[in-house]
Amino acid sequence: MDTEGVRLQKALANAGVASRRVSEQLIVEGRVRVNGEVVTELGSRIDPETALIEVDGTVIQLDQSKRYVMLNKPTGVVSTMKDENGRPDLRQFTQDWEERLYNVGRLDAETSGLLVLTNDGDLAHVLAHPSFGVTKVYIAKVSGRVTAQTISRLTKGIDLDDGPIAADKARLLDTSGGDSGTSLVELTLHSGRNRIVRRMMSAVGHPVVELVRRQFGPLHLGTLPAGRARELTTVERGALLTLARAATEEPSPGDQETQ
């Protein structure tokens, strides 16, 4: 352990994990790892710029210059920080932060829901790159009455112009669309091929009327209103960083990203 640097309990407290006294207790109880090794000595020092710290298996954000924001993107907004055609873009949602934030992946203009904005390029790469297989959950309002057989087709796999695709999970939420004759379907996918949810539902005869992304990896949209953005909580940041570490250790096959 470094003789220079910051005391481990101070680094934990600065990262918002707990008070310094509680952080000391976590260390003594053997619940803290530094670069993969359990550390129980209270005098231990670390370099906050290079050390990887975990508490109970969750990675802790030490670099306080990194910003992680959740946005509930409304429809009619394109997933870019500056649209060359003058359409509403994401800049209006980043004005509360001094850092230059960028969107992780995309949602098409007609799709609403969860987008991550960050200035952490390494994390953004893992979350957006298809090879890491981060799952996303969508709720689709579709035309027609969806049957159990259709749900089965979605999970068993269907053929599209750019190759076969299968949902990781699919379930029918509601068919009580009344006179409108619509259904609600929940799809879980690790693929991010261009407009994949819309194309999948059209392929089984149920075009999408409305589409929202409710989950992205470990993040849940919750009650965040459309058009609002907030910083991730300490727990959410830890979950994302932990996912990113696991993904880079065990990459999995995937596709590309835009819904």
Score class of each variant (00 low, 15 high):
M1A: 11
D2K: 05
E4R: 06
V6T: 11
R7Y: 02
L8K: 11
Q9C: 01
K10C: 02
V17R: 04
A18K: 05
A18Q: 10
S19L: 13
R20F: 06
R20K: 14
V22L: 10
E24M: 03
V28T: 14
R31C: 06
V34E: 01
N35H: 02
E37W: 00
V38D: 03
V39F: 02
V39N: 02
E41I: 07
G43L: 11
G43A: 13
R45M: 01
I46Y: 13
D47S: 12
E49F: 01
A51D: 01
L52M: 04
L52S: 09
L52V: 15
I53N: 03
E54K: 00
T58G: 05
V59W: 05
K66R: 04
K66E: 12
R67C: 15
V69P: 10
L71M: 04
T75I: 14
T75P: 12
G76N: 05
G76H: 04
G76I: 15
V77W: 14
K82A: 08
G86A: 09
P88D: 01
D89M: 04
L90P: 07
R91T: 14
E99S: 11
V104H: 00
G105K: 15
G105N: 09
A109I: 14
E110I: 01
L114Y: 02
L114K: 00
L115W: 00
L117W: 01
L117V: 10
D120V: 00
G121A: 03
V126K: 12
V126M: 05
L127I: 10
H129Y: 05
G133A: 09
T135K: 05
V137H: 02
I139L: 12
I139V: 06
A140H: 07
V142D: 03
A148G: 03
A148D: 11
Q149R: 02
T150V: 13
L154H: 06
T155V: 14
I158G: 03
I158F: 10
D162N: 05
G163V: 04
P164D: 11
I165A: 09
A166L: 04
D168T: 01
K169M: 14
K169P: 01
A170P: 00
A170G: 03
L172H: 15
L173Q: 15
L173I: 09
T175D: 07
G177S: 09
D179N: 10
S180M: 04
S180H: 13
L184D: 09
S191A: 13
R193N: 12
N194P: 00
R195T: 13
V197N: 14
A203S: 12
V204K: 13
V204N: 08
G205F: 11
H206W: 07
P207I: 05
V209I: 06
L211H: 10
L211S: 08
V212W: 02
R213M: 07
R214H: 08
F216E: 00
F216Q: 02
T223N: 12
L224N: 14
G227F: 04
A229W: 09
R237P: 01
G238Y: 13
A239Q: 14
L240H: 03
T242L: 15
A244Y: 10
R245N: 04
A246R: 06
A246E: 15
A247M: 10
A247G: 04
T258N: 14
